[in-house]
């Protein structure tokens, strides 16, 4: 017995993919929110962490903030192109966004190498434990984001599933916003 195949329709005016991604981001916010809240509470308990925060590479963090913000701009442009049906331009813009992510990771790796060679490893003190936990978790999300950006860019180039451009852009903005919180909390709180 083969049932009548209902054509997917949406009960609300919001596309199903967007609803799914928003709930996904809600669960991500809870993960980062929990980790950041722990850090903030300890930061309030230990005022002397300011000296340790001063040892982060502020210029590298500031540069990376600019890189991520710029990459969010190209993600917005990709979405605009996808809405207008310009598949190749959307794909192009997503690739530029991924390039931004790669630059961010390269700078992050340089920072880690610099810090580890100065003896500032995760076990050095609780501040550095949190520094590596938060930035490491974020870098993991940047990496996943780059993979997703490139996958969507590849299918968008062939004109497939242009709706996903918006979804991957939403996720990328989230990764960007998390960094906007992490940068002042970890680098500037000296």
């Amino acid at each position: 017995m083969q049932a009548h195949a209902t054509v997917a329709r949406e009960s609300t005016s919001v596309p199903t993919g967007r609803v799914g991604v928003w709930w996904f981001l809600a669960s991500e916010i809870a993960i980062f929110g929990g980790a950041v809240a722990c850090y903030v509470l300890f930061r309030a308990r230990y005022p002397d962490w300011a000296d340790q925060a001063a040892r982060t590479l502020g210029w590298a963090g500031a540069f990376n903030t600019a890189v991520l913000l710029t990459s969010s701009l190209s993600a917005v442009l990709a979405h605009h192109a996808a809405v207008r049906g310009e598949a190749v331009r959307a794909s192009h813009m997503l690739r530029w966004t991924a390039v931004g992510g790669l630059v961010f990771l390269a700078v992050k790796v340089y920072e880690y190498a610099h810090e580890i060679s100065a003896g500032l490893v995760p076990a050095q003190s609780l501040f550095w434990s949190f520094y590596y936990l938060l930035t490491g978790l974020h870098a993991l999300h940047v990496t996943a984001g780059i993979v997703a950006l490139l996958a969507v860019a590849a299918s968008a180039r062939r004109g497939h599933a242009l709706g996903r451009v918006e979804l991957v852009a939403l996720y990328w903005h989230f990764v960007d916003v998390v960094w906007i919180f992490l940068f002042p909390l970890l680098y500037l709180s000296s």
């Binding site: 083969q2 209902t6 997917a8 242009l162 709706g163």
Partner: peptide, 15 residues
């Protein structure tokens, strides 16, 4: 999220 863009029959023919 393979089916994220929606707009097509979801269940398709029975496997």
């Amino acid at each position: 999220m393979g089916d994220a863009d929606g707009g097509h029959p979801m269940s398709g023919p029975a496997p």
